[in-house]
């Protein structure tokens, strides 16, 4: 079947099988920033924004996104500029192996879009479906806090 999806601000059409997942479609179409870690919605490495909300793309059938909007980690940069969250992840050492990073950034993007001034607990909750085995989450929470601060025009932490 054919579907039309807006991905990272570009309107695209794909030919898909009705049983394939959004994760499979995106990786096949070259969005390799979307990572496969478990295929059961437990690790969050495959997270993308679907109509602005972060979801596990392994738990979404590609057919379902027909007519909807998807943003992957590749779409977070704007005009060649890194997003504040991406900069903050680099500055705080929140990236180690980087495999969970795209999903983590997507979850954090959803959070900040709906809650521009989250508490530490809300930050942790927002990324609680994104597993990371390298960092212990310490620096990722720090990174999101730093991004919040910068986006509100405050001083660097």
């Amino acid at each position: 079947m054919k579907i039309a999806v807006k991905i990272n601000d570009v309107q695209r059409e794909f030919s898909i099988t009705p049983g394939e997942t959004l994760l499979e479609l995106l990786r096949r179409e070259g969005y390799k920033g979307v990572k496969k870690g478990c295929e059961t919605g437990d690790c969050g490495a495959c997270a993308v924004l679907l109509d602005g909300r972060a979801v596990n793309s392994c738990l979404v059938l590609a057919a379902k996104v027909d007519g909807h909007t998807v943003v992957t980690v590749e779409g977070l940069e704007k005009n060649g500029e890194l997003a504040p969250l991406q900069e903050a992840f680099l500055d705080t050492g929140a990236v180690q192996c980087g495999y969970c990073t795209p999903g983590m950034l997507i979850a954090a993007t959803d959070l900040l879009a709906h809650n521009p001034d989250p508490s530490e607990e809300e930050i942790k909750e927002a990324i609680s479906g994104n597993l990371c085995r390298c960092t212990g989450y310490v620096k990722q929470v720090e990174a999101i806090k730093l991004a919040v601060q910068r986006m509100r025009g405050g001083e660097d932490a």
């Binding site: 070259g30 969005y31 390799k32 920033g33 979307v34 990572k35 496969k36 992957t72 980690v73 590749e74 977070l76 940069e77 890194l82 991406q86 992840f89 680099l90 500055d91 050492g93 990236v95 980087g98 495999y99 990073t101 795209p102 950034l105």
Partner: peptide
Amino acid sequence: GARKVDGVSLVTGRPKFTA
């Protein structure tokens, strides 16, 4: 605490992993 040399490619999801 320098930024990681591979950091930018990782936060932007460049195709750098095996698969």
